[in-house]
Amino acid sequence: MRPFHVDLGIARAATLEAPSHDGPASWTEFRPTPMTATGETMPAILEANGLTKRYVLGRRMTEALRGVTMSVAAGEFVALMGPSGSGKSTLLQLLGGLDQPTSGSVVFEGRDISHMSDAQATKLRRERTGFVFQAFNLIPLLSVRENIALPFTIAGQNPSRGELKDRVRQVIELVELTGKEDHRPDQLSTGEQQRVAVARALVTRPSVLLADEPTGNLDYTTGGELLQALWRSCDEAGQTVVLVTHDARAAAYADRVLVIGDGRITDEIVLGRRVDHSAAPLISRLAQIGL
């Protein structure tokens, strides 16, 4: 069950079939949302209800979000798309508990996180969420391994032995950085640096991975590699991913795309889980709604 849909979303999603030039093969992969074995949709892990966020910048009041209601199901890959200044990053920050909304609520795993204390929010970030940002995710003076293990170190655990050590090794394998564990960030390419960031976000096995323009600084190929890594974590390990991007090619990896404009969700485009991440259907769909 989906608690909320932008009105036209389903109807428009249906029209996706029309302009397809990818051939029917891709449509066999079409799954509107992840489903349980019994065919029911997974329960929502993250919900936003009537979120607004106002900033005071100098003497001007900026309204970044003007009432957003949405939800993300467990195991789902959701992309938040929109032009710059649309409020998509603000929404992601609120969803991850980095900031507090002016009004409305964020319910994460059944708990309202929109008015938590700093200590509670810190614990949440440490244990339940993982973040990847556009750039400068890494601590320059720490090695790849140390950077990835940082969440454990912060939590006061020793990541160099036992299960944690295995987990660090596993995520390094997942992002295909085996052999570069002792490199410093400045010895890596930008793409590799971002993959380290993904590995770090995944190492704690968070409920949700939140990524803010993770490919913004990457070229076509390395960007694709990173998205592939995100997608694999979702598809193979059931990782819930919320991705903010303005790039249709990146958004095409998602199961579902929420289009944000001027602080509101203006459209929902359901792509379904696809092995092939062709952006063409999404692009044509976006063209239809005038984006």
Partner: peptide, 10 residues
């Protein structure tokens, strides 16, 4: 900011 985002406390 990154450290705080991944769970470093004040």
């Amino acid at each position: 900011g990154v450290l705080r985002a991944i769970g470093m406390s004040r």
